[in-house]
Amino acid sequence: MEYEAVIGMEVHVQLNCKSKVFCGCSTNFDAPANTNVCPVCLGMPGAMPVLNR
């Protein structure tokens, strides 16, 4: 039997920025659960993402 190798890579990088990619919530690591969240990153109805520069 012939095999074809298909290799995928999933890369995780923590970017050096103060706010999240789609909203202005802090990326501070030690905050209590569900405190750095807003309508955008919770996917609330009607909320829209704006990309971090």
Binding site: S19, G24, C25, V37, C38, L42, L51, N52, R53
Partner: peptide, 19 residues
């Protein structure tokens, strides 16, 4: 065209409201 925002922290929701 791409629209970006500055990398600035804005207030999050109070947790009671988020949940």
């Amino acid at each position: 065209t791409n629209v970006f925002r500055e990398d600035e922290v804005t207030p999050s929701l109070p947790r009671e409201l988020a949940l």
